[in-house]
Design a protein around this nucleic acid. Structure first.
Length: 723
DNA sequence: TGCACACCTTAA
DNA sequence: TAAGGTGTGCAA
């Protein structure tokens, strides 16, 4: 019987692939293809891995090599393109291949039994070969479903002669039409920045460009011969739409489904139940899904006929994975589009400086939408309220209170934005100076009044609110500062007749509660909405005409050089919630009021002018002079240990291990939030103006680092965002 | 002596 | 990373 060696990628931190022996179970069982999923013994466990090579040389002794346990023949192998994508990501982020390939697969595909997998395949009309049956030509069996068991694909079941028949689409304005034409008419790799103010109808551009690309692909497919009978036809084209967060997906998903009622639209995000996640992932992998709408993790999904990638709100920080493989879904999307030779659309009203710089340099094509799309809707007027002159009571200035009252009288909605959840950020004792420090972290414990608890937002330690000061016994403890809960309390006092709703991570902890909260705002059951950045994104509340920003100043003086870029984007985004549907009852446009102690700060002045271009230009000049990204490439080596010395010692040794021209190795520094959950952390920043030079250095350096003996836990992040 | 816990080794 | 083996200190 035939025996061959396979190289298999497994989800372990070891930077290698593993050799296994494969033996045919019957004379005609084919050698597992590259990209095939297999089950192998690993240590004392079994694990699912991906075949990444065949018959490579091995230095291992023959008796060390174990046999493959099972091959997932019922799944078509992952495509060469997907393998290349994972290979690139593994290389670029300096992680083992298996750690890129496997964690992104749905759990049901990584399970050691095939029960869930076969169930999902069956639901999709693709049947696993009967496991008990005598071996037969598996290739055929794996690809084609048997007639009586095939559940008809919903796409194929539709009697409509034209599956691309669209739902009603609003007419486009000229700049939207130009953008659609540019995307649909792009040939080969084309990165396009769709720069459009909030409410300018970017979604409509995505939808119509997608329609054009799907239609063209369908025409090409039908002119080049009909599919074999009995096989479910793979979609001639697939489109991937990335969105920042799960709670945005329902609305957009609804829009897409309504527009393409005859196409197979699937969602991919971490909030899905395992069964649905596996079905949707498989629909994408089998080419059945025409449109995949997902969060960052969807960028690593298998899409055999991908023809267009859209990244909505491309500047959003949630495209960056912040644990495990710390990838940027946006950057991987651009790489993927490049490798496939397809267009990638990056949409934003406030693009990331990286993207903006690419556009300025002509590497990305810029498409602009300067007007709001809805009839009569104009950009909201933005004003600052000087908190030195108009002293706030309960966090609200009299100007803002008057503006809210006016909306109440007009039957319109107001949104108050405060990016700080809880009741108060700290509890303090006036008598002895005690404050609510977390006992495990260098951070305050936040007062949560409804739950009557102190909570650390860094390590989630929870305590009862003490009735008296733990050091001096004083019973009069004062909450200092103001979070959303406290503002909500104050609002009830000021507007006893108003319907007030708070939306933040605390109020929406239960599954589905965020959606029902947003629904009730849409239905007009809320007069005043108070919330954190959760409310700033995506939602299109028709009756909302006033946005109040309560206390954004802290971000102005952050040590993080990206803080002002983020604050600007956040203010533009939350401001964009006002007046999207048209004019207010009194004929005015939407209004945005920002309470600040620094009314003349250039950032606020730029927001007032809606002047992203000017502000981004200034920030880019600063970055260029300071040698910061996007004019510098960075990597960050982090270390942690029980004592700070362990972490610092490791980083000092690491810093002197290797040097290279054009590489700057900075001094190791203890982290700002030094102690988190009783672990001391420190970090070391590496910089280089050339990306390839940095990559080459990291590769060599990490090989040395991995040989170092240390008690520190460490990890490297390429292109870090939080430094 | 038993055991909880920290730390180290190994994976093909 | 996960699982198992080894070594240490402590209560009884």
């Amino acid at each position: 019987m035939e025996q061959r060696l396979l190289q298999v990628a497994l989800d372990t931190p070891l930077h290698t692939v593993f050799d296994y022996r494969w033996k045919a179970s019957s004379p005609d069982e084919p050698l597992p293809a590259i990209g095939q999923l297999v089950v192998v013994p690993f240590g004392r466990r079994e694990a699912v891995g991906v075949v990444v090579g065949q018959d490579a040389q091995t230095d291992l002794q023959a008796d060390k090599i174990k046999d493959v346990i099972a091959v997932r023949h019922q799944l078509p192998p992952m495509s060469a393109h997907w393998l290349a994508l994972c290979g690139f990501a593994a290389d670029y982020y300096q992680r083992p291949l298996g750690e890129v390939m496997l964690p992104g697969l749905p759990k049901n595909l990584r399970a050691l039994t095939t029960v869930a997998l076969d169930k999902a395949l069956k639901a999709l009309g693709r049947l696993a070969p009967a496991t008990k049956a005598k071996p037969r030509s598996r290739k055929k069996a794996a690809v084609a479903a048997t007639v009586e068991e095939a559940i008809v694909d919903p796409v194929m079941a539709d009697p409509s002669p034209d599956p691309l028949q669209l739902g009603a689409a609003p007419p486009l304005n000229p700049s939207q039409q130009q953008a659609v034409d540019a995307i649909a008419g792009a040939e080969g790799f084309a990165p396009l920045l769709l720069y459009g103010v909030t409410g300018s109808g970017k979604t409509e551009v995505y939808l119509q460009a997608a329609a054009a690309i799907l239609r063209r692909a369908a025409e090409q497919a039908s002119s080049s011969g009909s599919p074999e009978p009995g096989q479910s036809t793979p979609a001639p084209a697939q489109i991937l739409v990335l969105v920042p967060e799960i709670n945005l997906t329902p609305q957009l998903e609804g829009n897409i489904r309504a527009r393409f009622p005859h196409l197979n639209v699937v969602a991919l995000h971490s909030g899905l139940a395992e069964g649905e996640r596996a079905r949707n992932w498989l629909a994408a992998h089998l080419g059945q899904a025409h449109i995949v709408l997902g969060t960052r993790l969807a960028i690593l999904s298998s899409l055999p006929s991908l023809k267009l990638i859209v990244i909505d709100e491309e500047h959003d920080p949630s495209y960056k994975q912040q644990e495990g493989l710390r990838y940027s879904a946006r950057d991987l999307a651009v790489w993927r589009a490049h490798q496939l030779g397809i267009p990638v659309v990056l949409g934003s009203a406030t693009p990331s400086l990286e993207t903006w710089q690419h556009a300025q340099a002509g590497r990305y094509r810029r498409l602009e939408l300067r007007q709001r799309a809805a009839l009569q809707a104009v950009l909201p007027s933005v004003k600052v309220i000087d908190m030195e002159r108009d002293k706030p009571v309960d966090g609200l200035t009299s100007t803002l209170i008057a503006a809210v009252r006016k909306r109440l009288e007009q039957g319109e909605q107001s949104l108050l934005f405060l990016n700080r959840r809880g009741y108060a950020p700290v509890l303090a004792c006036d008598a002895c100076g005690w404050i609510s420090n977390c006992m495990r972290c260098d951070a305050f414990m936040v007062v949560h009044r409804p739950e009557r608890r102190l909570r650390c937002h860094h390590c989630s330690l929870e305590l009862h609110i003490p009735r008296a000061c733990p050091t001096c016994g004083n019973v009069d403890l004062q909450p200092l500062g103001r979070g959303t809960q406290r503002v909500e309390e104050g609002l009830h006092g000021i507007f006893p007749e108003a319907r007030i709703l708070r939306i933040d991570a605390d109020s929406t902890r239960l599954k589905g509660s965020a959606q029902s909260a947003f629904d009730s705002v849409h239905r007009g059951e809320v007069d005043i909405l108070i919330g954190t950045q959760m409310v700033a994104k995506g939602h299109d509340f028709k009756k909302l005409t006033l946005v109040g920003v309560l206390n954004p100043d802290t971000a102005l003086f952050s040590h993080d050089y990206r803080a002002s870029e983020r604050l600007f984007a956040q203010l533009m985004q939350v401001a964009g919630r006002a007046g999207r549907a048209g004019l207010s009852a009194d004929g005015s446009s939407g209004e945005v009021l920002i309470q600040t102690r620094y009314p003349h700060h250039p950032l606020y002045q730029a927001v007032i002018r809606h002047d992203y271009d000017g502000f981004a230009g200034e920030l880019l000049d600063e970055r260029r002079q300071a040698h910061f990204p996007p004019f510098m490439y960075q990597a960050l080596l982090r270390a942690e240990g029980r004592e700070l010395e362990i972490a610092m010692g490791f980083l000092k040794d690491a810093a002197s291990l290797l040097d290279a021209p054009a590489i700057t190795i900075n001094e190791p520094i203890p982290m700002t939030m030094m102690r988190v959950a009783n672990v001391e952390r420190a970090q070391l920043l590496i910089e280089c103006p050339s990306r390839p030079t940095l990559q080459a250095f990291l590769k060599e350096w990490l090989a040395l680092l991995r040989q170092m003996k240390t008690r520190a836990r460490w990890s490297l992040e390429v292109d870090p965002v939080d430094i």
